[in-house]
Design a binder for these strands. Structure first.
Lengths: 223, 223
DNA sequence: CAAATATAATAGTATTACTATTAAAATACG
DNA sequence: CGTATTTTAATAGTAATACTATTATATTTG
């Protein structure tokens, strides 16, 4: 996988940014540093002014790339899901039988990220942001508008892909989308709870529990 | 149930409020109106100034009850979970066999709220707030502090109660807490997605699908 | 090399999320 | 009943946020 990723650029919806941050050095530093700052201080305390100062630039320059910090968060989420989709396709094409393919997919969706494969984006830290902050992006009054503009298209496509794999295993299963979105959001919650509200989880019992738990849950549920 | 509720007052952690809002008419109007305003405008756009104006009072008066709008949200969440715990205990005591008891519990956790049983709190609208806004309460940098102060105690107790019911059905099931928190958060997500991102769900296929889906998922998973 | 574009710096605005102070109104209690 | 206490309302003020607008200076491109 490491061999291919450096050649890939994800096609992120152009409506999300004012100017493509991947098109300049400043843009890349904006994305790179915003990830570490949001992780460190949390989305609420993060501001474009602080970001400008950190990258030796200016608040107004950041606004030339993203019209709001909300848009920047949506951009990061889209980058994340493009990356997950890429890994998902890579890990599942040509895999048979259907059940093994599905198992691989669930692993991609629920595993912990341990190292950075490429580019200026730190995927380990980005995943932490997805876990702690991403729900703030879509729990907004603007959700319907933004959904129409296609801001959540990639996420929905990932859910669709895995739902199709569920149906390959059991074509008569009634609720594939609910199952897949439950696993995705659930795994994020379990990662967060294990850090902050551990009594809502059972992670202390072993390392790969989240993957094991959801893999088992899916296979049993669809049979 | 309607006969008992009017006599009940939930013991909400005193650290959450400055002055108990149930102790005065103004306090009750603060809670009552904040629920409808947060639902209408979303948590971000909701302010104590607007609330003061709406209840014919003043911003500063609201601060005498809650030290921040975050604290008010935490209060509403606690009220909600106290109410759910009450319903849960009511619906499950003396029920046998264990599997039926668990089924009742899952129904309480995943059902839609359709009418208001009592008091100045509109539970139908409060549930909408829980679904759309509650994750903002605990996705904060202050989570560990607040957890130590007991802000999430009732929620954790509800998870514990239902986890115990899971273990009654299958004492050797490894991940009861993960299963129960997955169901609770998952059901909230499905309610939200069905309104705003329907392709992440399968709710169009029928009315009680969310209850059915999670009940089936739990029973199959623990066997 | 001129023109176009990108960046940096500065200033300004409405709003937010509060704190502080004071006065008026309501309530409690001896 | 009257005074003390508490509650509420009104006003003012503050630092920070989330922007917009303007201009000057770099940098890139044709």
């Amino acid at each position: 996988m490491e061999h291919l990723l450096p050649f890939v650029k994800f096609g992120i919806n152009e409506k999300i940014y004012v100017k493509d941050p991947e098109s300049s050095d400043l843009g890349r530093r904006i994305v790179e540093e915003s990830i570490s700052m949001i992780d460190e201080m949390g989305f609420e305390r993060f501001t474009f002014k602080k970001l400008g100062a950190k990258i030796g630039s200016n608040e107004s320059s950041v606004y030339r790339y993203f019209e709001s910090k909300h848009a920047l968060l949506v951009y990061l989420i889209n980058w994340y899901w493009s990356w997950v989709e890429y890994k998902l396709v890579f890990a599942t094409t040509n895999v048979t039988p259907a059940e093994l393919k599905l198992t691989h997919a669930i692993k991609i969706l629920t595993q912990e990220i341990e190292d950075n494969t490429f580019s200026f984006i730190n995927e380990v830290v980005l995943k932490k942001i997805i876990v702690s902050e991403s729900s703030k992006a879509y729990h907004t009054k603007d959700i319907d508008d933004e959904n129409e503009k296609g801001f959540y298209k990639i996420y929905k496509r990932v859910v669709q892909r895995v739902s199709d794999m569920v149906l390959e295993v059991n074509p008569s299963f009634e609720f594939p989308h609910m199952l897949v979105s439950t696993v995705i959001e659930g795994a994020h919650h379990q990662r967060y709870f294990s850090q902050h509200l551990p009594s809502l989880t059972d992670v202390s019992k072993g390392k790969n529990n989240i993957i094991r738990f959801y893999t088992d849950l899916v296979l049993k549920t669809i049979k």
